[in-house]
Nucleic acid binder design. Sequence first.
RNA 1: GCCCGGGUGGCCGAGCGGUUAGGCGGCGGCCUGCAGAGCCGCUUUACAGGGGUUCAAAUCCCCUCCCGGGCUCCA
Length: 481
Amino acid sequence: MRLLRIYNTLSRSVEVFEPLDPPNVKMYVCGPTVQDLAHLGHAKTYIVFDVLYRFLSFLGYRVKYVRNITDVGHLREDTQVDRILVGAERERLAPMELVDKYMFSFFSDMDRLNIKRPTIQPRATMHIVDMWEAISKLIEKGHAYVVDGNIYFDVSSYENYGQLSGIRREELVKHRVEPAPGKRNPADFALWKRAESGYLLKWNSPWGEGFPGWHIECSIMSIKHLGEQLDIHGGGQDLIFPHHENEIAQSECITGKRPFVRYWVHVGYLTVNGERMSKSLGNYVSIKDALKKYTANDVRLFILSSHYRAPLDYSESVMDQFVEIRKRVEWCYARVLEALAEGCVEGKPSGEFSGRVDSIFEGFIASLCDDLNTPQASAYLMELVRTVNTLLDSTRSPTRGDLEKAKQALADVFEVLGLKPPEPWGGGERLYLVVDRVLRLREEFRRAKEFRVADMIREALEEAGIQVEDTASGPRFRVLR
RNA sequence: GCCCGGGUGGCCGAGCGGUUAGGCGGCGGCCUGCAGAGCCGCUUUACAGGGGUUCAAAUCCCCUCCCGGGCUCCA
């Protein structure tokens, strides 16, 4: 098995990836709070972990991947109101109606971006009892205390607090929000909050009616579905503090096992004009809007064009560059599929071609092994495309073996990067026959040197979304996207 | 204030001590009736600025400038 090297936020260095129980890998990624439409910033994070998931599988690991849905307890800092309730009020829906709407919207976005479904997608509200069992344990062990129906985690009871974010406990006395009365230390965070009588999102608990804190949810869902120690835990860089810092504290105090997570992986921001894409700044593009203009492959190639930990700036002019790249890559693959479908000379692949493809593919894999260097891996994809195009253009007809070799390499690269393979013809059988007949007629005009008519036909087809290319072996056509 | 990241050719972006990154765009060539696609070449001795270290620095060290992010809201 080839070794993956990956950056661990905890050690701030690239480490060799060694799961606790190979070949099994336990991976947890913080999912969205389903309060509104997901945007391209979310897409970046989930596409990166999708590639990690696919690549680990390619390397031979058996990955159990959990990505949660947050449907309660995530408060807005300014108003201290649950984000789900804010959304529900905005759209005049019941809280769980809103949750359903945006959860299914999120699932649909993920599917359309060709992001593989995780093994389990747990919802916070389905784990309330597990949460208060864990909270009881924390109180028993002296890591948490109750104040008037609220329960706080006592940060001073956990000596390693701050290890992930590098924030020192003593600095946390500064705060932007007025600390809740009764907290022993401003840095203490809520595990459970008391709810007033008219509050919509609340559950019974041993401490009266209330709802869970945001951080405890991920601790509980990850422990429940993956066990007390995880191999990989990830999310956006924004989650390092306080969310992930708090998760470590809670989880290690609950289980008594250390480390809670072996490798912490964080994805850099998607920015717009240098600023983070976010709901609050209003500079976001929803995944649905992006997919009106661009294909899933455009978006994936764009997002994978920079290193996952680096920031990536979104703009339409840059996206347009990736449309060109995507066409080039897809058309190369499509040509291989067409050549195979049309029948070709039987025979084994030439040693030279086969060797080149193998060495390019090896470079591709080595790039991904190097802290998931997708930009370099993309460069190998482009080299593969050039090599395959050269084969297809060569005067010697490629053999079936050559074409199968090319197809296999492209298919593997597409699979690992999560690119959708092109459809050889996306227009249906009837349209295919019509265009085929029209082009046969056009060939008559071309043979008769009636180029004006031939060009008119070609332009008319192009206007209708069908691109025609005249090649040495006759016209080719495809549906434009 | 305290902590992290960054500044690479027209544009996007790898590289992080010696080797052509790659792509987009532009220009030229091959091919073609033309176009498109593809391939080849050029644009490309680029690395914020100034000092060092070194046989050798985009890469290491120091200083300066600029940008982004975190410091209990966000993937």
